[in-house]
Simulated scan of single mutants.
Amino acid sequence: MTAYPPEPWHLAGQAYVSLWRLPVADLPKLPDGAEPVVLGGRAQVIAAWIDYQEPGQLSYHELLSTVAVRGKRPSASITDIWVDSEVSLAGGRALWGIPKNLASLGFTHGRTFTATAATDDWIATAAFTRRPGLPIATPAAFDVVQALGGQLKRSPVAAKAKPHPAIADWSINALGPLGYLAGRRPVVSVSLRDFTLRFGG
């Protein structure tokens, strides 16, 4: 059994995020009881590459896709997620019901950030070119909503990051688990520099 830190986890690093708007019929499966936020007949899907770094408790790479869902405050449900850390996988599943899987993830940082994710086959690649932004850490708070023990669990997240607009070029395997995003262009993309994150209660 893999040991992992108790919640909350205190994490830090760099994140690269894109937002898509999809017809509800094209969404991946959500946990029972979770309802997507629908605006103008479309739901909101956010996918992100995250490089967790020191001084956070854990260091690893991650690719995830989430759907904005209804809640008393901004909320999202993680439908697809890959990490390259067995500790993160075990803790995410046991503590919060996050359906983490292992994958090979490669990140290259620079003015243009590039990333790849693959298991037996490739999942996705992306390149983010960061634009100038304010050097001010902006706070955010939201809930992650997952199925755990046959019930919906809402886990609070508090974060701070320096947001920068970005131009993102995604390539997604249409036959892979993120195929619902293949061939679609994100509405907006951002780089979240030097984030700090408190995940869980």
Rank of each mutant, 00 (worst) to 15 (best):
M1F: 15
Y4K: 06
Y4H: 15
Y4V: 07
P5Q: 14
E7D: 14
A12H: 13
G13P: 07
A15I: 09
Y16Q: 15
V17R: 12
V17N: 08
W20Q: 01
R21V: 11
P23S: 12
V24I: 11
V24P: 07
D26G: 08
P28S: 10
K29V: 15
K29R: 11
G33V: 06
G33T: 13
G33N: 14
A34K: 10
P36M: 05
P36K: 01
V38M: 12
L39R: 11
G40F: 03
A43P: 15
Q44K: 10
I46D: 00
I46E: 10
I46F: 11
A47N: 10
A48P: 00
W49G: 06
I50C: 06
Y52F: 14
Y52W: 08
P55Q: 07
P55E: 09
P55L: 05
G56D: 09
L58Q: 14
S59H: 13
H61F: 04
L64R: 06
L64Q: 09
S65W: 00
A68P: 03
V69F: 04
S75D: 02
S75W: 02
S75L: 03
A76P: 02
S77N: 03
T79K: 02
T79H: 00
T79E: 02
T79P: 00
W82A: 03
D84K: 05
D84F: 02
S85K: 00
S85C: 03
E86A: 10
E86Y: 04
V87F: 00
L89N: 01
G91L: 01
G92D: 02
G92N: 04
R93H: 01
A94K: 09
K100C: 00
L102E: 04
S104C: 00
L105R: 06
H109A: 11
H109P: 03
G110T: 11
R111K: 12
F113G: 06
T114I: 08
A115C: 09
A118H: 11
A118S: 13
D121I: 07
D121S: 07
W122N: 14
A124R: 08
A124G: 09
A126V: 15
F128T: 10
T129R: 13
R130S: 15
R130E: 14
R131K: 09
P132N: 08
P132G: 09
G133Y: 08
P135L: 09
P139I: 08
A141I: 06
F142C: 13
D143M: 13
D143T: 12
V144N: 06
Q146Y: 04
A147Y: 02
G149H: 10
G150N: 05
G150V: 07
K153F: 12
V157E: 04
P165Q: 01
A166E: 09
I167F: 12
I167A: 09
W170H: 14
L175R: 15
G183E: 01
R184T: 01
R185F: 08
P186M: 03
V187M: 13
V190W: 15
S191Y: 07
R193C: 00
R193H: 15
T196F: 00
L197I: 01
